[in-house]
Design a protein around this nucleic acid. Structure first.
Lengths: 193, 193
DNA sequence: AAATGCCCTTAAGATAGTTTAAGAGTAAAT
DNA sequence: ATTTACTCTTAAACTATCTTAAGGGCATTT
């Protein structure tokens, strides 16, 4: 069931044949995660690439004042990766925490590298995963340097219509880089029209 | 001379042997670019991965009002890539323009794919290039949603000390997501201390 | 040498976003 | 069932940033 979702996800890129599915699935570990549970904490080295089969996570940084800043939401059918920590084995500067009860599939670095070596298709598929996230990030930088908070909020609603209904506005505000109070004001303005 | 710089760049990742250098260099085209010349325009499909051997470029977006927003500066010893346009052959939404007279090395997509197929080392090296840029981008998003303009400016000075002396402040302001007037004010504040 | 264009700065007034405080509503914990 | 914690909203005062306008300094073009 859970694996099926992952295979279906790869079907969007380069689909895997029976043998490749075997190779992949025997290297994956399934985990259930409770709401508010962390799968990565600041200072730890990220040991896994993680596929979200069900649920939703946030990736965030905590500044010196103790304020959280949400870098990304990752919901079902998407990958969680903390690239710098994972590949370079550096301590992570972010936390990754479940916002809902979730089910994930995880693969370790040695296993992933084996897959890369054994079959270029994996290399390609995982490159595409990074590329997609890359495009998302560049768009976010562009928005951040060129748009007002209201524009960013409307873009978010547009881009993640389902997510925006599942997430509390406090979390969305933290993602947009504004205070919850100001988001509230924006929402009021919008609803007036 | 120009090729040497590229090889030296790869030495930071997984160094290439003689044969691999051959394979790579016969697929590269060297180009001289004048100041203010574009190597990619909005609407065009990005046909190359580009290594900057000398000089400096800016990658920017132009909004509906005609205002430019700098997404990135790319100086010597770094790679220019417009991933979405290059891999998915979509029209680019950004321009890439030389800020100084420059020398670049370019490789086309078919040639790059051939390299990927022929030797996993290339795959790995180009993955690392993306990863590095990726980390840079995540840091930028974090800064954008969590820091004031002054903090972002100080981080920029710190992170790109040489660049910050070569670039006009108007360009830096566009990168930071503020107006040149406000950057001027910030600089005055800082120098008072 | 004059003219043009680009860059940097200053300042006043406007707008966008934060802070603090408070209250009401809802979900979670005991 | 009650308490506790979290979320959303409002408003007033404050701070960060933008807009407009203007002037001076270089460098490049004519």
């Amino acid at each position: 069931m859970t694996l099926e979702k992952l295979f279906a996800n790869f079907d969007n890129y380069i689909p895997l044949d029976e043998e490749e599915r075997e190779d992949l699935s025997k290297r994956l570990a399934e985990r259930k995660v409770k709401r508010r549970q962390f799968i990565l904490q600041e200072g730890d080295v990220c040991k896994h690439y993680t596929f979200v089969a069900e649920g939703c996570f946030k990736k965030f940084h905590v500044d010196k004042k103790g304020t959280e800043h949400n870098l990304q939401f990752i919901a079902e059918n998407d990958w969680i990766m903390e690239i710098d920590s994972f590949y370079n084995e550096k301590p992570s500067r972010v936390f990754i925490e479940a916002l809902e009860p979730s089910v994930i599939l995880q693969i370790t670095k040695p296993d992933l590298i084996e897959l890369f070596m054994s079959n270029p298709k994996f290399n390609r598929n995982f490159r595409v995963i990074i590329e997609n996230r890359f495009v998302e990030l560049e768009n976010r930088v562009l928005q951040a340097i060129s748009s007002t908070a209201e524009e960013r909020y409307l873009t978010f609603l547009n881009q993640y219509p389902k997510l925006s209904q599942r997430l509390p506005n406090t979390q969305i505000a933290s993602y947009l880089g504004i205070t919850p109070e100001f988001l509230s004001k924006i929402r009021k303005e919008i609803s007036k029209r």
